[in-house]
Design a protein around this nucleic acid. Sequence first.
DNA 1: TTCCCGGATAAAGTCATACGATAGAAACAG
DNA 2: CTGTTTCTATCGTATGACTTTATCCGGGAA
Lengths: 253, 253
Amino acid sequence: MQLHVNVRATRLNPDRLFGQVAHRLAVAIITGASPTGALLPNEDDLKDEISVSRTAYREAVKFLSGKGLVEARPKSGTRVAPREAWNLLDPDVLAWHFAADPNEKFIRDLFELRLFVEPSAARLAAQRRSDADLKRIEAAFRGMVENPPYAEPTVNADLAFHEAIFAATRNPPLQCLAPAVSATIQWSLFLKAPDDQFFFTASLIDHERVFDAIVQRDSDLAAARMSSLVIDSLNSTLGLLAARAQAGAAKSA
Amino acid sequence: MQLHVNVRATRLNPDRLFGQVAHRLAVAIITGASPTGALLPNEDDLKDEISVSRTAYREAVKFLSGKGLVEARPKSGTRVAPREAWNLLDPDVLAWHFAADPNEKFIRDLFELRLFVEPSAARLAAQRRSDADLKRIEAAFRGMVENPPYAEPTVNADLAFHEAIFAATRNPPLQCLAPAVSATIQWSLFLKAPDDQFFFTASLIDHERVFDAIVQRDSDLAAARMSSLVIDSLNSTLGLLAARAQAGAAKSA
DNA sequence: TTCCCGGATAAAGTCATACGATAGAAACAG
DNA sequence: CTGTTTCTATCGTATGACTTTATCCGGGAA
């Protein structure tokens, strides 16, 4: 069975010019290089900066404004919107964060959200899953087992596993949170220590236990086990963040 | 104290031409008038349809593509994306739904999500609230009490109440779910029966109990009471939906 | 017949230019 | 110093030309 991945992947087409411009602007905003309230380069000036036509630039801005990153007000200029206005759960916005340094608070917040949502999703999945859902979840799990730890197919299988559970909830708005879950998983990978065999094996077991509970249609068990999975994942990620912070401190000293 | 409302309100500027076009297209997509896979009017043909320049049209499409509603590919055309790709939690997408007939499944799904998230949010708020948060929540609650039932200021106060609780969680990604909660509240209003004094009073009591729990920093209590609030609200809304369905059936019969 | 390749083609993407409208600053008058 | 006017900068919209890309389709090779 084919793995379902990235149904709700990023919408920005990097092949297109406006997409590259949008990416540049977005990263500058998210890293804080363009602080809140800063005027974006004037639509005429930007020709000199990145030799691109006003059209492409404006379409990039429209794309970003839809996600709340910028606010274009006629005559006064296009400004970076305050962070409270950003749609942090948008797949593109989540993805752009990977171009910035890891923000521990943000990652913790995402895990916190995940801890609220994903156990409930697992509960619903246990109640509502069809056989097709089950196959899809199982295929994803096997993808995690059969590939080398932390390799790309393994990570994709991990993402597919969680996506499949969301899909089994039959709740489309809830499924829109899958990208946020994916982001935390990708952060773990991004931060991964070279050979973390222990955490990987533990993670596999966590996943298997969730899967079994869903097979058995035991909703409370599924929720509880998903909680454990998320907490284990959080702890592992926090460990990696701490290690990274230590390494950074050592280097700068 | 001023009520904080709509921090994360819709980003579409209805004064601008491209905004009107985006709204038109979005409503057609969400109502299903333009079904999945349908080609949007060709960029050249649309001049005849809605006499608007290609520029404005294209910017509207970019805006919608960022929310996953449409997908534009050279040579093949701009198509309506499948619903799984839509960002249903985006404030604009939620708002556009109000232009369509109420979709009971969608509203139930939103309530389900709310039931997973908002009690947890109330729990965090009880733990983390500052005095300023408390003032903001209280101001919103007073706004609900002091205005006539179902009047606009009352509804705004209701929205502000829930937004303020999300704000008190200090978790920005979680706060991004506030628009989804607001949407359910606005649906209740939208469907409201003329004089539903009973439900309104019950709702006030629910809100007061949540507020008290947050004041007392009793996180479990806050979560439990928020659950009750959401369930009561769900039941009330389902009742309105049923009444509406009955009325519709009677009319068509 | 089937398969692969390559050109025709249609649609979106990009560019340059022009003009309109208006928010906000600057200049000015009281 | 304050209120008013003028002016400019900047976004919004329109238009036409050109570029890029993916699909379609037909022809030639296996």
